[in-house]
Design a protein around this nucleic acid. Structure first.
Lengths: 382, 382
DNA sequence: TTGTAAGCGTTATCAT
DNA sequence: ATGATAACGCTTACAA
């Protein structure tokens, strides 16, 4: 019998039945109930049925706290992100959520606002509760931080950033390939003065994209001029400022590549306010293909990749590690990008009469966008 | 002494120190360590210092699982939302996250995709882990669901929806007041044919906004015609469709009020494609003031309210209950709205010459937008 | 002011 | 195939 007061006269008692209640109801030991619930192969079919029935009857649900305490697993993973209201982050979260849900894991969301203290506090709180793993989006731990947290044993995967301190798995996108495809496409359209709006100064991904821009500019023999490069910080606002800066410098470009969509869209806004027509006077290409970019009012040509896949891949990588995969060193998955041509790109004014279709709506794989001759190559291999 | 193998010769052992290790290191009992950590008033200052020091030295952190098991509290709350990639949801989450963080509570995020089965599965999983409370965004439990989950005792607060089954606290916005202010503003501008795009058919908030529209139309003696009302579902797509439907019906309106921004923006897209100029040919007002709406390319006049405040209020209400407030019945907080006049509204063509400033950028409290005579009144009181 | 000991609800290791 | 029993790491009476 249960030690509780709820006997059969009061079956709807307020507090939850424990495994002992189930065991008592079945006339078996708690261990057997546990074995049934864990699908152990050696329980007699008859007992299994009985237990299952009583479990349903009593509405028994195992206490996660007790399970965690006993097994050391919490069936939850921590997701540490910088800014949940950034539209592309939401999609990543969705991808993560989906695969975790499939494995009945919980997602514990931590929003740091890119504050290092909060990141540390959150992480150690997650460690307190024995999360089975950690996913960091656009964040990383320094050697020092990793040491302070004593981040041993708990699997970590980073998104859009490497973490040298741990040798953790990571998933990212081929940012450089995307930028190359964008520059190449503009070059083929006839543009010679292609400006670049850089991402946040502290961001590794921003560096990579900038390097890719400079390489592509050289490769396509297009004008390379430091006056065409302006620093942004990934925010929409900084895109507007960048454009004004560009024009203030004199020699305006005929095309602009921004390191992300938010800045490209900010640029679009500034251009509109300045009375510069897109794409007639200037072409604009972004990076990310956020929700907003496909809107009829925006129709931004941009580098596309699946945010949801990023999240899903991160979660899958993590689950593999959690499930015991100690395989060869850190794994890294890099997702492909593709250029989506929408309404903000066209040949520059000079060559325009000779060339049609400024509003093409095709989506093209990065390389194909520029080089019809070799349809099977990808930007990431160029 | 600790029963573990890590004595002072191997202080950096891999597995985490327990309270016993700390107690041993201090030469006190585990209870004392616990008391120190719980800030019990009666511990000797000297002991407190010693314990604190050793705790820091060993890097001891209490196991949440053990604490939960013992105390029944988990220091985490579940947040059940329909669609995390909806831009306005992200801001609500941010508000929730902020107040939970302040109280060092965890946020467990559950994305149901508005699927009832997933909602139920997630909820019972949250219950398994003894979450201290639940926040439901734009969702609710039926009597039956509530019974199936045995949702007793765990505090719940709903956002943008009531839950009659529980008599839970709720936070919402004065949607009706916002819609009234929108209609009133348009009427004062001189519009007579004001269309309305309804929200999702199953949504209580959509009903409320529609009712407010009909009342306002009557109050302002503007044309009331069922041909001016079209069903949407809160999606951008449905806003586009609604506009085409409206025009297909013949007598086009001179103004459109949409039950949310996404639909209003969809409408803007369709109007652009149809060559109908906004605001010259038709005015458009949305509801929500999402991030997108303030963009230079969009500049949507809309009903504003603080999404972050909604989240913060929900979290605060919940924390009060968790902390033991059993006060008088369900509490409800209703946040104010205000009309933000941007670029998508102007007087209708007929009266336009007589009236200026179609691009006013002022933000106005709802009522003031329409009635300069009584600047202190609010839409919610009209 | 501090220590002892019971117990929270599981699961794992033995026996049987 | 099933049952005792001992942890897991903490908090909290209660005793000292």
């Amino acid at each position: 019998m249960s030690k509780r007061t709820n006997d059969s006269d009061a079956p709807e008692s307020a507090d939850r039945p424990t495994i002992l209640d189930v065991a008592a109801a079945c006339g078996v030991s708690p261990a057997t109930v546990s074995n049934v619930l864990a699908n152990k192969p050696y329980v007699r079919e008859q007992t299994r049925q009985l237990v299952l029935q009583k479990v349903a009857e009593l509405g028994y649900r195992a206490s996660r706290a007790a399970q965690s305490l006993r097994t050391g697993r919490s069936w939850s993973v921590g997701l540490i992100i910088g800014d949940i209201s950034n539209p592309y982050v939401a999609e990543i979260v969705q991808g993560v959520e989906e695969v975790l849900w499939a494995k009945r894991n919980n997602l514990i969301l931590c929003n740091t606002g890119f504050d290092a203290d909060r990141k540390m506090a959150y992480t150690s709180s997650l460690l307190d509760q024995h999360v089975d793993g950690l996913i960091l989006v656009s964040q990383s731990f320094s050697e020092e931080e990793a040491r302070a947290l004593n981040l041993v044993d708990v699997p970590v995967v980073t998104v859009n950033r490497a973490c040298e301190a741990l040798k953790s798995d990571q998933v990212g996108i081929d940012g450089a390939g995307g930028i190359r495809a964008a520059v190449q496409y503009l070059a083929q359209l006839g543009h010679r003065r292609i400006a670049f709006v850089k991402g946040a100064a502290s961001s590794p991904s921003a560096d990579g994209r900038y390097v890719a821009y400079t390489q592509a500019v050289r490769a396509h023999k297009v004008v390379s001029d430091s006056a065409l490069v302006v620093q942004g910080d990934y925010s929409m606002e900084s895109g507007s400022i960048a454009v004004r800066e560009l024009w203030a410098r004199g020699a305006a470009p005929t095309a602009i590549v921004a390191a992300n969509d938010l800045m490209a869209i900010g640029a679009l806004g500034a251009l509109k306010e300045m009375g510069v027509d897109v794409p007639r006077d200037v072409s604009v290409i972004g990076f990310d293909d956020i929700f907003l970019s496909n809107h009829p009012l925006v129709r931004l040509t941009t580098v596309h990749y699946s945010k949801r896949d990023i999240g899903a891949n991160a979660a899958r990588l993590l689950m593999r590690r959690i499930e015991g995969d100690r395989g060869d060193g850190p794994r890294a998955v890099t997702l492909d990008t593709s250029l989506v041509v929408r309404g903000t790109t066209a040949p520059p004014r000079a060559v325009r009469p000779a060339n049609g279709a400024p509003m093409a709506k095709t989506r093209v794989k990065s390389m194909r966008a520029a080089s019809k001759a070799r349809p099977s190559r990808r930007a990431s291999q160029s």
